[in-house]
Design a protein around this nucleic acid. Structure first.
Length: 889
RNA sequence: GGUCGCGUGGCGCAGCGGGAGCGCAGGUGCCUUACAAGCACAAGGUCGCAGGUUCAAAUCCUGCCGCGACCACCA
């Protein structure tokens, strides 16, 4: 019973050498191009993964899509290059290194900036190759020889150049603003880097005593979710139209605990419906309060330090964390009899997208990019259609994002990143943004110092498409850019649409005067099997490296693409990967079959001597068209479905079966050769079409195939099939003939299965069809005989139903299988009756439709015609089935 | 609050105005010399609900229900 051992395979061992062969062949660098597309450049920039990151399913899908695009372009003869590189990922990397150092008892501040950056570099040297190796394991045909890095010297010059240019153009400015402060990372982060989460909280109602009673009123109740910030309150706001408080506006409050006298003022921002209609205003710790404070001219008092502990000057509260301060403040209000009441209240709270700490709106000096002049050209690029999104609807998301864009805080209080190239002279007040470091003040000669902050990682990421091609040193005239810019395709997930995609367009328009890419593919987000986003905490994540080990890179790639739809999310389905692995296996076996029957083969043009030959070439021609169309509309799911159906259901299920008798040892030599050549040709075209998705197995097969002297050495640069040239093979007659053959074979197999007749038992079969179809079928007699395993095959337009036979109707022909006594007539009668019922219902429906005046007068004539034909067919079928029933008694 | 996506056989999905399909799982029979990770055959769905447009609706429109994402955010 050991017949079917589980098949295990070492995919890495099979795939790695092929990858090395591609690399050594130089195909990963910009290809020279050939054929009619030789002059066309085709470039993709990879969304740079974090340098210390590891491959996740999002990368796996995204990189598969890009590799499919670039490989097809390469095979079409274009000058391709897929630019590879990694992102220094400021906060992410710094957080990791911080943690690593902490484990050794080292604090970043103790060792200082330079030593820390060195530690980051060490970290990068150690882990920076991981993800690139994983991308290689996938078989991605990136330009590994010219790997980029967002903190390489060249890239750094580009970043610096943009900062200096923007600074001198007045696009970059400095300001004291409320920013989202992460007290754990101790840095500002951008608005779109903050994540909101709903949390159960409370609405504390606090009594704020008036300095003097007004009309007998002694205090005012304010509602707040953050009582601890009251330490920094500098006012209380009410809506100017709120009659409850009209008499209080202009009076003052004695702020409890702090003893500060603060004004009651009116501002339309206040919603009278919410809480008590009176809002405590903390300009330094809330963006809306900041805005009101500006309007009312309030003081802005920071009560937290950079780690969100209460600053000096607040007595016992000083030094407390936010959480401690909250408790203490509430307790103190209670003690003073000023805690009115507490309500439950859910509200959304901002968290750091990196470390997940609760963010603190914090007043600080930061650098900003003014987006006013940048957003226009970026919107126009999409509105004009110069940049196309796929699916198209994402362009709306893009445009909406731009329309609502606010100035971008680009300074980060980190050490790992591009240090802001601003230089200051404390002696004379000189300052400027400079390309070269400035040690002494050019005005007064005093020592100059550089800004301590670094730039937001996205500030450098936005330069990716052109800084990787020489912009930093040569500007828009860089030779690479002149020849190969804009790039063709950018593929990414939708969550960085604004963060990255839009910013690249803005920066590119500014720096190069061009769009950065022509097509933006927004692929669906890969969700876990449970339909929820993959995450460590949920435990629904899947490791692509693990998948590749189990199913091969080809299996993973194909399986992922089959799941791509136009929707915004796809639920990861392991079975799809398994099915893809099985498909890869099927392809390999099909190839093995072909290569196993090569004796006597000599290369030559295909000879389409049989209907089966003409059929498979016709199907192949349609396949090339369909695959091309799917690529052009970026419909990768459709593309894989087409390939799957062709390989499995047409080539393997039928054509290879058709071929078996022709390849037998005693078969006629010339027909055998024709069949061999056809198989080789079809297989070669098919594996070319499949190569962009399943590069390894197709290359492996190609290497084993017989090739002519002028053939490409490797499949990776073999010419892509020409749909127009193949179109001449489309042959409706041949497709009809094979359709009938399949119908006959299927009918006989079905009868066998129903009555448990072994394939070894030969059966008499009678086929009745139109004369023209009879002629087509007659030519396929041999095929039918071998596939249906007949003893006697009668094909005639006037064939009779033999006694004791099972009848089947398919493809407009009647197939009678003589069952010679094996038949359970009752079962056969029941089956026919069921079929008859179904046909009768269908015919009734159609008859009603065709009896409808409205339909006859308004429907397109060809539709009416078609339905009349269908009804006639159905009536015919019904008559035949009734005849069969009568025959069966 | 705004924008968008999705609800089709047990599961995952395709189809997106004129005959309900695919893959997987499950059923039956097969180790047929390319493949048991396979082959053959059969079974399985009133296409979320309610209206509307149309001669014709899974497909278009409206509303509702359910799931989900993104953006904004009221202390």
């Amino acid at each position: 019973m050991s017949e079917h051992d589980t098949v295990t395979e070492d995919y890495a061992q099979r795939e790695r050498p092929l990858f090395e062969a591609w690399r050594e062949g130089g195909y990963f660098q910009r290809t020279p191009g050939f054929g009619s597309e030789a002059g066309t450049s085709y470039t993709i920039v990879i969304p740079p993964p974090n340098v210390t990151g590891v491959l996740h399913m999002g990368h796996a899908l995204n990189d598969t899509i890009q590799d499919a695009c670039i490989r097809r372009a390469r095979m079409r003869g274009m000058q391709t290059r897929w630019i590879l590189g990694t992102d220094h990922a400021g906060i992410a990397t710094q957080t990791k290194v911080d943690k690593h150092l902490a484990e050794q008892g080292i604090n970043r501040r103790e060792i200082g900036r330079e030593a820390f950056i060195e530690a980051c570099q060490d970290w990068r040297r150690e882990y920076g190759t991981t993800i690139v190796n994983q991308i290689a394991t996938m078989g991605c045909s990136c330009d590994y020889a010219h790997e980029q890095f967002t903190m390489s010297p060249e890239f750094s010059r580009a970043v610096r150049r943009l900062f200096v240019d923007w600074y001198h153009d007045g696009i970059i400015y400095r300001g004291k603003r409320i920013v989202n402060w992460c007290p754990s990372c101790t840095t500002a982060i951008a608005d779109d880097e903050a994540e909101y989460e709903d949390e159960a909280g409370h609405l504390w109602h606090l009594r704020y005593p008036l300095s003097e009673p007004v009309d007998g009123v002694e205090y005012l109740v304010v509602a707040t979710t953050r009582p601890e910030t009251m330490l920094g309150d500098t006012g209380v706001a009410v809506n100017p139209k709120d009659p409850r408080y009209a008499n209080l506006v202009g009076h003052t409050i004695e702020l409890p605990i702090v003893g500060r006298t603060i004004p009651i003022f009116a501002d339309f921002y206040v919603d009278s419906e919410f809480g008590t209609g009176a809002v405590k205003v903390t300009p330094a710790h809330d963006p809306n309060d900041f805005a009101m404070g500006e309007r009312a001219g309030l003081e802005k008092i920071n009560v937290f330090d950079e780690t969100a502990h209460v600053v000096e000057g607040y007595g016992a509260f000083s030094g407390m964390s936010r959480e401690e301060a909250r408790e203490a403040v509430v307790a103190e209000f209670e003690r003073l009899g000023l805690l009115d009441h507490v309500e439950d209240h859910d509200h959304s709270v901002m968290h750091c997208y990196r470390c997940h700490s609760t963010l603190e709106p914090w007043l600080s000096e930061q650098w900003f990019v003014s987006v006013d002049t940048l957003k226009g050209p970026a919107a126009a690029a999409v509105e004009s259609g110069r940049i196309a999104f796929h699916p198209e609807r994402w362009s709306q998301v893009y445009l909406d994002w731009l329309a609502n864009l606010k100035d971008w805080c680009i300074s980060r209080q980190l050490w790992w990143g591009h240090r802001i190239p601003m230089f200051y002279c404390d002696a004379c007040g000189w300052s400027d943004a400079c390309m070269e470091d400035v040690r002494t003040c050019p005005e007064c000669g005093a020592p100059a110092r550089q800004d301590e902050d670094v730039l937001d990682t996205w500030f450098s990421s936005q330069l990716w498409p052109f800084a990787t091609q020489g912009w930093g040193d040569y500007g828009a005239d860089a030779p690479e850019l002149v020849k190969h810019y804009p790039t063709q395709v950018l593929s990414t997930a939708r969550d960085i649409m604004g963060l990255w995609v839009a910013r690249m367009v803005m920066a590119s328009e500014y720096c190069t005067g061009q769009i950065p890419f022509e097509h933006v593919i927004i692929h669906p987000t890969v969700m876990g099997a449970d339909g929820k986003p993959m995450s460590k905490s949920r435990g629904n994540g899947v490791d692509p490296v693990e998948l590749m080990r189990e199913f091969g890179a080809d299996g993973m790639r194909f399986g992922l693409l089959t799941q791509v739809t136009g929707a915004q999310a796809m639920r990861f389905d392991r079975q799809k990967i398994e099915a893809a692995r099985n498909f890869a296996n099927k392809v390999r076996n099909a190839a093995r079959f072909v290569l196993m029957h090569m004796d006597g083969y000599t290369p030559g043009v295909p000879t389409l001597s049989t209907a089966a030959d003409r059929w498979i070439f016709s199907r192949l021609a349609r396949l090339v068209r369909a695959v091309d169309a799917a690529y052009e509309s970026f419909d990768f799911g459709e593309m894989t479905r087409e390939l799957y159906g062709f390989f499995w259901n047409e080539l393997c299920d039928w054509y290879i079966e058709f071929s078996k008798s022709r390849l037998a040892e005693d078969a006629p030599a010339d027909d055998k050769l024709a069949c061999q050549r056809n198989l080789v040709h079809v297989l070669e075209v098919a594996i070319k079409l499949l190569h962009p998705v399943m590069p390894f197995i197709t290359e492996e097969i190609y290497q084993d195939m017989p090739k002519t002297a002028d053939a490409a050495r490797m499949l990776i640069i073999a010419p892509w099939p020409d749909a127009d040239a193949l179109a001449t093979f489309i042959d409706d007659d041949a497709e009809r003939a094979v359709q009938m053959v399949c119908a006959v074979v299927g009918a006989v197999r079905s009868a066998r299965a129903r009555y448990g007749i072994s394939p070894k038992t030969l059966l008499d079969v009678h086929v009745k069809a139109e004369p023209a179809d009879c002629a087509l079928l007659e030519q396929q007699r041999g095929l039918i005989e071998s596939l249906a395993r007949t003893s006697e095959l009668t094909i005639a337009s006037d064939a009779d139903k033999p006694a004791g036979s099972s009848a089947a109707l398919a493809a407009g022909i009647e197939v009678y299988t003589v069952l010679a006594g094996h038949v359970d007539l009752d079962a056969e009668r029941a089956r026919v009756r069921k079929e008859l019922d179904r046909a009768t219902v269908d015919a009734e429906k159609l008859r009603r439709k065709l009896g409808n005046e409205g339909f006859l007068s308004k429907a397109a004539p060809e539709i009416v015609q078609k339905d009349r034909g269908r009804l006639a067919e159905l009536d015919d079928t019904i008559a035949k089935l009734q005849g069969q029933l009568a025959d069966l008694g």
